Structures are given as C-alpha cells and as structure tokens.
Amino acid sequence: MSFLQQARATVREDLDAAMLRDPAAETRADVALNSPGLHAIWSYRLAHRLWDRGPQWRPAARLLSTLTRAVTGVEIHPGARIGRRFFIDHGMGVVIGATAVVGDDVMLYHGVTLGGRSLARGTKRHPTLGDRVTVGTGARILGDIEIGDDVQIGANSVVVKPVPAGAVATGIPAVVRFPDHPAQDPYDALFAEPAIFI
C-alpha cells in the first residue's frame, strides 16, 4: 500500500471513529472541516512520521506540533505513539507527552493530560493506555503507568497508579473499582456510574 493510500485509509478510519463517538456529528464533511480534535490527530500523524525519520527531521516535527497547538488547542508531542481510530472530543486543552503510548479506539475528552511525573531524560515518563479506553474531561493520568484495555477514567480524576483492564477509575486520587456488570457497554457504564462525569 502506498503512502497516499495508507493516508486515505487512516483519514477514513478517523472520520468513522468521530462519527461513531460524536452524537453532534451530522456528516463526515462537517466533522472533517470543524473538528479540532481530528485536525490535531491528523497533524500529529504527519509530525510523528517526521519524528520517526530521524534527528534531522525532529525540529520540523516539533514546529508542526507547536503550530497545531496554536490552531487547535491540542498539544501532542510527535514522539508519542498513538493507535488507530483515536478521537479527541472538543479537543481544547489536551496534552499528550513525548513517551505516551495510546492504544486503538481510545477516546479523550477536552482538558485531558497524559503527563509525566519525572524529569529524567531518556526514560519512559508518560502513561500507556490500552485499547478502548475512555478518559473523561479534565482527567490527569500521570507517570509511567499502565491503563488496561476497556478502562473508563472519570472526569477530573487524577490517576497515578496502574488501572487494570475493565476497571473504572474516579476521584482525586483515583479510586479503582469494577462495574457491576462486566459485559456492560462502556458508554452505558457512564450513566450507571455517575462519578465518571464528576
């Protein structure tokens, strides 16, 4: 598959993810033109390709990420690793650090930080999120910790310890618990677990 074909397929996947997760999305064209979260993701994907090309391309990658932050309000370091069908709803204030790893089908709301807790250079300092993770508005996930698959992080929560797959984490500091119905759809779990919105 050529670079252009791969880019088109990725854009289609990202649009599909946005249409699936954003109830306000009316058309793919509307989302493509008006979603700062998508614009930030697409710019990140290009910046990440530049970053991976080697040290001589990294200043250009950083410049692109800085320009993207100025336009969208979303700061994604080009060194971060982000999976497929990633979606940021609203976008403003999202920060994703250099060594963060984000799985497939992850959704972040505005104001989320995937940040570090160490100033040590050359080490993994940011969190790793599994697949199908949803992170609520204003949540902070800090440090080199693992967030398992299918985890729900509540709005404004501060997570500094690992969260096992399928769990719900809410509060400051976050308290981890498991839904009453393990097979419950993650979106329905938001309504069954009101603290996720807090």
Rank of each mutant, 00 (worst) to 15 (best):
M1F: 06
F3R: 12
Q5T: 02
V11Y: 04
D14C: 11
D14S: 10
D14T: 14
A17M: 13
A18K: 08
L20R: 13
L20Q: 10
D22I: 00
P23C: 01
D30M: 11
D30C: 01
N34V: 06
N34A: 09
S35V: 06
P36H: 05
P36M: 09
P36W: 08
Y44V: 00
Y44E: 01
R45V: 03
R45L: 03
L50V: 04
G54V: 12
Q56L: 10
Q56E: 09
W57H: 08
A60E: 07
L63V: 07
L63C: 02
L64N: 02
S65A: 09
L67P: 00
T68A: 04
A70S: 07
T72A: 01
V74Q: 09
E75P: 05
R84D: 10
R84V: 10
R85N: 03
V94S: 09
V94P: 06
V95T: 10
G97H: 02
V106W: 05
V106D: 05
V112F: 15
V112R: 15
L114E: 13
G115D: 14
G115F: 14
L119S: 08
L119N: 05
A120P: 03
R121D: 11
K124L: 05
H126D: 12
P127R: 01
T128V: 14
T128K: 10
G130K: 10
V135F: 11
G138K: 07
L142I: 14
L142T: 10
G143R: 12
D144R: 12
E146P: 08
I147W: 13
G148R: 08
G148F: 07
D149E: 04
D150T: 01
G154D: 10
A155S: 14
N156H: 13
S157F: 12
S157N: 13
V158A: 10
V160I: 15
V163L: 07
G166L: 05
A169C: 12
T170G: 05
V176G: 06
R177H: 07
R177P: 00
D180W: 02
D180T: 08
P186N: 03
D188M: 08
L190T: 09
L190D: 00
F191M: 06
F191G: 02
F191L: 11
F191C: 02
A195W: 10
A195G: 11
I196K: 12
F197V: 15
